[in-house]
Design a protein around this nucleic acid. Structure first.
Lengths: 197, 197
DNA sequence: GTCTATAATCAGATAGAC
DNA sequence: GTCTATCTGATTATAGAC
């Protein structure tokens, strides 16, 4: 079933990469086309408009990211400790963003700039992913042994913003994606002070 | 010395608000002018270009945010515990962003989209602020009693991204800015699990 | 399915009256 | 210091050949 990389897929890949790197307004159709080995008007044979193309990248990014994280968490089984599941989600999210999935990075990069109407549809598609995080957090709180004075929604917003920022500042160096992922989980779960105080 | 709000200041205020709300490409000169009670060409009497106007908002945002945080930390005195100083910085940052300083919110909102040349200058202006955070974190690590396996740079990047995200999702409700600020500090310092485990 | 040529649109910027 | 009118340039989008 592995389809060969046809023109349509090349355009989507190029669009995802361009959106990541240059943002919504910065990613010109001519850039996307060039990266896909064609000229701008050829894109219109595959997509009716730039907005349609962008929206498909957003939907694909949400789907990929969601599927990756859910897979990594659910392989642990439903009876794994909630904190273990939450840690797995955090590490999977960072690993996915930093190991080159430009679709998921593109979502974090340009979501705020989407036209209102599209943003509504993208947000709707995002909601099941968001609810998955909410449930992970609430399950961990319900299991006890955590700081119950923290608001679950506030924790989720801060956590996702933190994770989503990583593609914008991470550069390969002494720390690899897996190590950043581990640091993210340690920071969120146990804080800058940590456990050994 | 309190200068009355002249045209130039009204334009800057409007630009900061528009940049926050709509992003760099979304904030049209006609929007900014209308919010300032004039028409687009009038802006050119006060600023030579949109880029110059945007850059001045960026610089002002960095200056205001930096000054506010440093003031709130330094009032504690240099002999305050490093963790107390770090907490004060975190809370001051959130409070400032959420209590309506659109200049500082505008920086976080549009920085990634700035043209490369301007971004370099803005980043240079930002560096002393960034270094202040770096020093707060390093001082706390040097004082001991924290998780030394965390990389100071990674902590700083995650921390600032988390704090800067707050204007994009916070809406006045049951939790006020001061409470969000406290939750942010608790989350960063002691984590989702917290101290009582 | 991709191209060349061109239209349509829109936002930043300028000229000059008042 | 602000306006009306206009220009310029960039970018999305269309038409139609190959």
């Amino acid at each position: 079933m592995a389809q060969i990389e046809n023109g349509r897929t090349r355009i989507l890949d190029s669009a995802a990469a361009a959106l990541c790197k240059k943002g919504l307004a910065g990613a010109k159709l001519s850039d996307i086309a060039r990266m896909a080995g064609m000229l701008a008007p050829s894109i219109y044979h595959h997509f009716p408009s730039k907005d349609h193309l962008v929206e498909e990248v957003m939907m694909e990014g949400i789907y990929r990211n969601s599927r990756h994280i859910v897979t990594k968490v659910e392989v642990l089984g439903a009876d794994a400790l909630p904190l273990v599941r939450l840690r797995a989600a955090i590490e999977a999210h960072i690993n996915f963003l930093l190991t080159g999935d430009s679709y998921s990075s593109a979502v974090a990069r340009v979501f705020d700039d989407l036209p209102a109407e599209m943003k509504g549809r993208v947000l709707a598609a995002y909601s099941s992913f968001d609810n998955y995080w909410r449930d992970l957090i609430i399950a961990a709180q319900a299991a006890g042994g955590v700081n119950t004075s923290l608001d679950a929604t506030v924790v989720r917003k801060f956590l996702i913003a933190m994770l989503d920022s990583s593609p914008s500042w991470y550069r390969p160096g002494k720390l690899g994606p897996a190590q950043i992922a581990e640091q993210a989980a340690d920071l969120v779960l146990y804080g800058f002070v940590g456990r050994q105080s």
